[in-house]
Structures are given as structure tokens and as C-alpha cells.
Amino acid sequence: MEFFEDIVAGQKSRFGSRRVTREEVIEFASRYDPQPFHIDDEAAAATHFKRLCASGWHTCALTMAMFVEEMKARGHQGLGSPGVDELRWLKPVYPGDVLSCELEVLDTRRSRSRPERGIVRHRLTTYNQNGEAVMHFTANGMVAVRGD
């Protein structure tokens, strides 16, 4: 089990591997971000993307799925998040890309109002198969402290 006390600033970890498929790009975008360059090959070809690309929100969802899998594997006692402070889509994600993640712990602090929780500020970066960063966000996660 991993608790707040086990997490230190500067800690980095790499994890995940998700192949992005054309079908899921179109399915996700059709439901949640139906812009032409996410759902139509011909329309996408006429844009600066030059071809069908994933919605940034789809990239976020894929990243979150990999992050949750990693937390489960570590026995991480996560308690949710009060939010994301910064989100940047750096490069398009295309069908066929294979995504992976890097988590860097920026700082940690014990919650003043909820002493049974710690706050971990982290940066999560998503990379494609070429090692290029395609997205990153900075967020605060709430983590259970080890019981006394």
C-alpha cells in the first residue's frame, strides 16, 4: 500500500501503454467533441492536422485510465482531486499512436483542515511512441495518510 508518507517531491515514474485506434477516436469525438477533424477523414485532411486526430479530451481520458491503473498497481490510497491547475495539449494524437505517461511529484503537504489527508501536487505528462510530449497537466491529488 502506498500512503502520503511514501510520496516525496522529485519522485518520477514512467508507466502505461495505450494504442489509440481510429474507431475509438471517432467514437469518443462523435459523443463528446464532434469537430470535423476528429470524426471525418476528408475534413481532417483539409486542416492543419492533415489527418484524423484525437480530441484533447480523449487524450485526457486515456491518460487518466493509465494513471488509475498505475495507482491500483501501487496500492495508492488516492482520495480524488480538487482540480487541475494547468492543462496543455502540446501535439496532436493520431490513430496508431502509442501513449505512455510520466508522473513527477512537485511537492507534498499535509492538509490543515483534513489531517487524515495529504495533498500531492504533481505533473503528469503523456508521450507518444516517439518520446514526444503530447499533453501535460499539473494537479493536486488527495492521498490518505498512514494511520497512527
Rank of each mutant, 00 (worst) to 15 (best):
M1L: 10
E2P: 00
F3M: 10
E5S: 06
D6L: 02
D6F: 00
A9E: 11
A9W: 02
A9Y: 03
K12M: 14
S13R: 14
R14D: 14
R14K: 15
R18M: 11
R18D: 08
R18W: 07
R18F: 09
V20H: 00
V25W: 10
E27F: 08
R31C: 14
R31L: 15
D33M: 06
D33N: 07
D33C: 13
P34C: 05
P36S: 06
P36K: 11
H38E: 12
H38Q: 07
I39C: 11
D40R: 02
D41W: 01
D41K: 04
E42T: 15
E42R: 12
E42F: 11
E42L: 06
A45K: 15
F49P: 04
F49S: 01
K50A: 11
L52P: 01
L52R: 00
L52I: 05
A54K: 03
S55Y: 00
G56D: 09
W57M: 04
W57D: 08
T59L: 03
C60V: 14
A61W: 02
A61E: 04
F67K: 04
V68G: 01
E70T: 03
H76L: 11
Q77A: 13
L79R: 15
G80I: 10
S81G: 08
G83V: 03
V84H: 00
E86H: 08
L87E: 02
L87K: 06
L87A: 08
W89D: 08
L90W: 00
L90Y: 00
P92T: 10
V93M: 08
V93W: 05
P95N: 07
D97H: 12
D97M: 04
L99D: 02
S100R: 05
C101R: 00
E102G: 06
E104M: 08
E104G: 09
L106T: 02
D107F: 04
R109C: 03
R114Q: 14
P115G: 10
E116F: 03
I119P: 00
R121M: 05
R121C: 03
H122R: 11
L124M: 12
L124P: 00
L124G: 01
T125H: 00
Q129T: 13
N130A: 14
G131P: 06
A133D: 05
A133T: 03
V134G: 03
A139C: 05
V143Y: 02
V145K: 15
V145H: 06
D148H: 13
D148Y: 09
